[in-house]
Design a protein around this nucleic acid. Sequence first.
DNA 1: AGACTTAATTAATATTCATTAGAATGTTTC
DNA 2: GAAACATTCTAATGAATATTAATTAAGTCT
Lengths: 400, 400
Amino acid sequence: MTRKTVLVGRPPLIRQTNAEILLRLLRESGPCSKADLVRASGLSAPSVTNVVATLISTGLVETVGEGDSTGGRPPDILRFKAQHGCVAGVEITRNLLRFLLADLNGRELAQSETLIDKSKSTPRQICRQIAKELWRLLAKRGLSRNRLFSLTVGVPAIVNVDEGTVLAFTALQDWSGVPLGPMLGRELKCPVLVDNDTNLAAQGEFHCGAARGESDFVFITIGDGVGAGVFLNGRIYRGSQWSAGEIGYLRVPDISREHPSIRKYGKLETALSASGILKSWRAGGHATSRSRVICVADVWDLAASGNAEAKRLLRQRATILADVILDLALILNPNLILLGGEVGNHPTLLRELNALLEGSEFAVLRVALGALGIPAVLLGAVSIALEPTVLRLLQAPRQG
Amino acid sequence: MTRKTVLVGRPPLIRQTNAEILLRLLRESGPCSKADLVRASGLSAPSVTNVVATLISTGLVETVGEGDSTGGRPPDILRFKAQHGCVAGVEITRNLLRFLLADLNGRELAQSETLIDKSKSTPRQICRQIAKELWRLLAKRGLSRNRLFSLTVGVPAIVNVDEGTVLAFTALQDWSGVPLGPMLGRELKCPVLVDNDTNLAAQGEFHCGAARGESDFVFITIGDGVGAGVFLNGRIYRGSQWSAGEIGYLRVPDISREHPSIRKYGKLETALSASGILKSWRAGGHATSRSRVICVADVWDLAASGNAEAKRLLRQRATILADVILDLALILNPNLILLGGEVGNHPTLLRELNALLEGSEFAVLRVALGALGIPAVLLGAVSIALEPTVLRLLQAPRQG
DNA sequence: AGACTTAATTAATATTCATTAGAATGTTTC
DNA sequence: GAAACATTCTAATGAATATTAATTAAGTCT
């Protein structure tokens, strides 16, 4: 007897709704009593009693003993049972895998990194490696495998998030079209979300980083490549073909020729990526310089300490970036632009940028550095899995 | 007896939800019987009977007699009573006001234009002129004043939509900071929404124009100025300071100097607006040309018919526009770009653009012309008011 | 010790939907 | 033309969930 539509409301919808509301209150306000929930929600006391009873029966809520009396009967304190299960985030990079296991509050339970064996780097082998490491981390925390409720995977690629398939993978070979989500889902027996790593980093900064509370911002990451995570209306915006924020292909005035004709452009990625900047640095005849430059941050540091050539390079790159930020600001009018990545997340670059943007009549936005660094992707991965996972547990009380 | 929170679910929530669902079905599927609603909704027949009774009591639904029998008792046919009330759209331009009155299905009831008397163009006087004309249109259709349920106003300005205040108004003087929404709301005694005209045009193209069904697109209007309506996730995206899509200030290579240094830029608006193009045309020494060019469309027509100078101008401007479109595509990855406005909405320009974009490796999107022309703003204004208005009527059965 | 306060539960009542049964009103068949 | 059948709609009853009011539980305060 299957229903044609599950859209209409029936009496249990009320219980469902109120259970979600009370659970959200419990998660956001921390431990409290039923009486507190009555006051916070506006529901009647008997209803709260009933709803809490069902929440406890799902295992998502537990009592933690009595609280202090305030002149009357002491309350039973309730709290969200974050260790009822866990979610995981995985980041796949060119040569290693990063893992983060977190409880249902998003707090870290375990963390690790494993190198990718180049001889075992087919998608299927990577999946097996991921599963193996996740089982290890779960065991380490004394959790059985069915306590893993959700996994989010970040990859440096354009991803069809609906289907969990990798559309274009620049760092690794032969990943185009791979249904990574379904593959891992079968292996791990839990829902798997696959997304672009920069999108997840933006989500991470939103959840617990420098963009907390900002419903409209853009996270620009500059490292081996250049990309942006576009966060609008309080959530990642992915575009119609999953490639929003692929700003690496924006055209910029070609800096390899000093006075070319107007319409010569280069890719933003070529100009701004770490390799592009280091190439310019070395081409500038600085082999003689005794300072050991091994990464772009070294160049920015040199600029900060007065090196003229480094300052020129910084100014040049910052100008390009300022142009991009100005374009983003005009098109999207975000509240905030965050800089991340090996090249982008540097105070000297930020200072230079702010100086450049100050003169603009449309500098009505804030530019800042990402607060999380490398873990941003994993933290975003975990955070994006939490809400839907908790709600799903609520809807299906019988789980594992 | 005010409730602290109206968030929680109580039994009437179900009726509310189901009433909305049935009303939506009736509006979208056209007239049908209760039995049809039972099949479409999944609700039981008695519930449908009850819900429909309350819908009829609000005046939003009416019976229109019996339908044909299909082997049994003939059904009572129900339909959404679109003439129960009406909504209006107003467009304020530099020198005239446009009006559109529509029923609750969005179908036109009346339409008009009135000139702005330059000696009576203060915000308050304009408001009075708007009210007067709306009352006239209502009377013309035999509707009493309290049948106007909602008004949406489009202005060529950045607008704080939440507060209904005009933030920056380029065409008229002294409109900065004017609380247009509240002013009109007091006068008309109905909810008033104020929005940017280009945003409303985008909404119009989405509702009944060339962007129907496209949840992610950008509507670029090029006329006296240059602006964009950014439509993401199925709705207008306005940005954090209400100025998303203000692409008129994007920098483009300065075309007034042929070989300047790289970093000389002009405003997109200067290059692409009607006045900018006509200036270039006249500066080109075409006064001798016997063809009478009075608007940019004439230039584009000349280009189409082979005039070399017009073709050069077309190519130049199309190239700039192609760059902007490519940037938009990379940042937002929309499915569609629509061209509107006096300059933008021209097949010759579109053809040139498509030719230019064909060579790009990232031309993964469609560029097309807006389908509605000048009425786009009014149609968008009306369409954006419909959904919330109908739902509001449902929530407050006693209205007028 | 007794009064008061706060927390939580129990009991009674209202709203809403589903189900079942049946009335109303046609068409189809013999 | 009458019986059988199909379809639409309504009435009565029961289940889920909420509310209010009353009651029980377990403290504090004088």
